[in-house]
Design a protein around this nucleic acid. Structure first.
Length: 418
RNA sequence: GGAGGUGUCGCAUAGUGGUCAAUUGCGCUAGUCUUGAAAACUAGAGCUUCACAGCUUCACAGGUUCGAAUCCUGUCACCUCCGCCA
């Protein structure tokens, strides 16, 4: 959600943002038209209310002086009331329309975000790590895992449908070790660890900006709850509706949760292996900062750094991508993806995604703080993946496979293995 | 699922039809004092506004009334007890 004043004053810029994010820009003109109407009506109703209040005050004074309300004044009050009654349904309708339109306005990409309609416009910022030289042809993680009895997708499909999987034996322990390793890094940097609810309400989905745009990408329960696609939803919503203190910022939290995604637009994509699945586990990091873009950009880089530290610890080669406007979420202001090297596929594949939002999410979630100067502001929010499995697990397996078909356990994970 | 209770401005509280933008304590912000801090004192804290003023708020949505934090109805959330259950 953007400040309506900002939209009014930067109409063209916001329209351009819609176009650059492949969204319909006509929503801005619609919104501003409704905004005009809304304000005109507000003015009209305010005037009537002033009249009503003045009238009531006059009666109040009479009563206080021991008199009785005059018939004239009571009649006048009734007339005003009737007029207001007539305007109320219109007011309600206009405000609902206004909120609906305002909720559909995307955030404006930061100045350094490349403009482009699809992933071909993403920019590689840097590549890190050395790709291992194999003296044999590396297999895909699927082959390696199936040979070791670490993965069963056939039976999973029978039970859970397409994209289902069982992790078996050491694959499970390795996954858990990966999650613990990820948590240990966040703990080291002072993040508060939590397990996050995955069954969330639509307010949380709306608040984090997944609704209305991503409504089709999620599963719903018969009670109207949503299976969250990321712990970001619960972690960012954690302080929803609260007024924080500047001295408490930044707030750093990390959480682990299962994640659910319908992957509706991806039929036929990544059908091999466990890169793209409906259910996975993820450690996520979320930061709430003061309302200052420089500060939030510093955190953006820092959070990216934590994920890079994890990958470097695992000795996995990766590249950092600056995502173009068309490949960003509606609420995001800037986004980096990290793609990790998969030697079995000879490809970099997305394993991490780091975004910052300014106050876009905070406005929707109503997370404010009292600043040192006494004013009340919305916090700025950020989030980033720390480790998502089985995707990252697959990367580890492809990079650490040995000629005999076994997999070496990365040194940093050994303390966490059982 | 059954019975009862609660929901007020960051937190906690006062407030049962007009004197309530709303009491008090803590916390917060600014100022006075101080080398600085603490303490004490003063002021401030919904929105629009330089201000005057106006509008709005007491979980949410309706209703009664000239006038609602206060009365009525519904909804939601939370708490306690009972039932069921990991």
């Amino acid at each position: 959600m953007l400040d309506i004043n900002f939209v009014r004053q930067n109409k063209d810029q916001v329209k351009e943002a819609c176009v650059n994010k492949n969204l319909d820009s006509s929503i801005i003109d619609q919104l501003l038209a409704v905004d005009e109407e809304r304000r005109a009506l507000q003015k009209e109703m305010d005037a009537l209310r002033t009249e009503a209040n003045t009238n009531a005050d006059a009666i109040k004074k009479m009563v206080a002086e021991g008199g009785r309300p005059s018939a004239d004044l009571v009649e006048n009050g009734k007339t005003i009331k009737t007029k207001l009654k007539e305007l109320e349904p219109k007011d309600k309708e206009i405000n609902e329309k206004f909120v609906e339109l305002a909720s559909g306005v995307p955030n404006v990409p930061a100045a350094d975000v490349p403009i482009g309609k699809d992933e071909s416009f993403n920019q590689v910022v840097r590549q890190e790590g050395n790709k291992r030289e194999f003296d044999f042809t590396p297999k895909t993680h699927e082959e390696v895992m199936k040979n070791l009895d670490w993965l069963d997708t056939d039976r999973a499909t029978k039970i859970a449908g397409f994209r289902g999987y069982f992790l078996k034996n050491d694959a499970l322990f390795l996954e858990q070790a990966l999650m613990l390793y990820a948590l240990s890094i966040m703990k080291k940097y002072g993040f508060t660890a939590m397990s996050a609810p995955i069954l969330v309400n639509k307010e949380a989905m709306f608040g984090t900006g997944y609704f209305p745009w991503g409504a089709e990408d999620h599963y719903y329960t018969q009670d109207g709850q949503i299976l969250a696609g990321t712990a970001e939803v619960a972690l960012t919503s954690y302080y929803g509706g609260e007024l924080l203190r500047e001295k408490d910022l930044p707030i750093k939290i990390c959480g682990i949760s299962p994640c659910f995604r319908r992957e509706v637009g991806s039929y036929g994509k990544d059908t091999k292996g466990i890169i793209r699945v409906h259910q996975f586990n993820k450690v996520e990091q979320v930061v709430l900062t003061v309302a200052d873009e420089e500060e939030t950009r510093k955190w953006h880089e820092q959070m990216l750094g934590y994920s890079e530290e994890l990958l470097k610890g695992l000795n996995l080669p990766y590249q950092v991508l600056l995502m173009c406007s068309g490949d960003m979420g509606a609420g995001q202001r800037k986004k980096y993806d990290i793609e990790t090297w998969f030697p079995g596929q000879s490809k970099y594949r997305e394993t991490h995604s780091a975004s910052y939002f300014n106050d876009f999410q905070a406005r929707r979630l109503n997370i404010r703080y009292q600043a040192k100067d006494g004013s009340t502001k919305f916090v700025y929010t950020l989030n980033n993946t720390v480790a998502a499995s089985p995707r990252l697990l697959a990367a580890v397996i492809e990079n650490y496979q040995k000629a005999d078909g076994s997999v070496e356990i990365p040194e940093v994970l050994r303390p966490f293995m059982i």
